[in-house]
């Protein structure tokens, strides 16, 4: 359904408040992946990896500087007028920090009516439809007259989801949709999303830094580092048998395996100072000469996933190296 080809988002900004020098930020640098209908593609990585930017490009909110995004075969960023409207209707985004994604001066009723009114000029049946949508996300009628600041984070996120659903989308981009919420609330939202997917066949692009969450929710996953996808494959596989050294460390960190920190050297990267060759090489304990010079491309690994690393097979085979 969705195909991202060689997506790049570069921008430049002044280095400091008073400086004239400009720094170039390669937030996203040549990313490609595909999402199948009714499946969930997880995009995982640490802060600054570029995942939110990818999400914004897919949702039509940020213009990429290079590459294409094909939705049902059509280049999203070349669409105009009616076709663009239809695209926006079919792809909706759920944001991090629920309360910020709702207009603070609008009631829930107004928030959810807005998309309904855009789709059709049918005013009379709107209220009934709004109540239906609220029901879908587990909220009752009493919420109609509430303002965002009167509701909890979880409730706000449900309203945001209801609003997205009102557009009758096919693809939902979920950008850290549960990051600000308590664990138990997160579980509720996740269950809701999965239920909706099973019943209504939605496709999800699930962006998160929480590996446990992404592995649970996604069918396929792409691991991002400094603007690139360095590993891409089936979700369970990638998290039980990671092939890229970064994925391995990330996995170990999220499981709080204490020794993992030993395998990571140096400081986290900055987007303004992207290393030459393999971007991970300054922190990788397996780095060699070739890693410093040549950027690895995504190639197929042993179990069907794709890895961008010069030495993935050696790391796999040489148990001594991983000790």
């Amino acid at each position: 359904m969705l195909s991202v080809n060689n997506l790049s988002v570069h921008y430049s900004r002044r280095r400091g408040f008073l400086s004239r020098a400009r720094e170039h930020i390669r937030a996203v640098d040549g990313i490609s992946f595909e999402i199948e209908s009714s499946k969930t593609f997880g995009l995982v990585g640490e802060s600054g990896a570029g995942k939110s930017t990818v999400g914004m490009c897919v949702a039509g909110l940020t213009r990429p500087t290079g590459g294409q995004i094909l939705f049902d075969g059509a280049d999203v960023w070349k669409l105009k007028g009616q076709a663009r409207m239809r695209f926006h209707q079919q792809v909706q985004m759920i944001f991090q920090n629920p309360i910020s994604s709702l207009d603070p001066r609008w009631t829930v009723k107004q928030i959810i009516s807005e998309p309904l009114l855009r789709l059709s000029k049918d005013n009379e049946r709107s209220e009934g439809k709004i109540i239906d949508l609220l029901g879908l996300v587990g909220l009752n009628e009493s919420f109609l007259s509430r303002y965002p600041h009167q509701m909890s984070g979880g409730q706000n996120q449900r309203v945001a989801i209801a609003r997205a659903l009102a557009m009758e989308p096919r693809l939902l981009v979920l950008d850290e949709a549960t990051s600000g919420l308590d664990v138990s609330v997160q579980a509720q939202i996740v269950n809701l999303l999965l239920k909706l997917q099973k019943e209504l066949g939605f496709t999800y692009l699930f962006i998160s830094h929480d590996l446990g969450l992404v592995s649970y929710v996604s069918d396929y996953v792409g691991v991002m580092y400094l603007g690139q996808i360095i590993e891409n494959g089936d979700s369970s596989l990638t998290f039980t048998a990671p092939r890229h050294p970064y994925t391995q460390v990330l996995l170990a960190s999220s499981k709080f395996e204490m020794d993992a920190s030993k395998s990571l050297r140096g400081e986290p990267p900055s987007l303004t100072n992207v290393p030459q060759g393999c971007r991970f090489h300054p922190r990788c304990r397996f780095a060699t000469e070739i890693c410093r010079e040549k950027e690895p491309q995504l190639e197929s690994a042993d179990l069907g996933q794709k890895v961008a690393c010069h030495h993935w097979s050696e790391i796999l085979n040489d148990a001594k190296l991983t000790a």
Binding site: D182, A187, L194, Y216
Partner: peptide
Amino acid sequence: ALLQSIPTIAKRQGENRPPLATIEGTA
């Protein structure tokens, strides 16, 4: 309940995805 509501890698068993346990109501 808290432990059961945390998604972990282990909880995903291939195609099978048992729903996360949730705690009804709010704190």
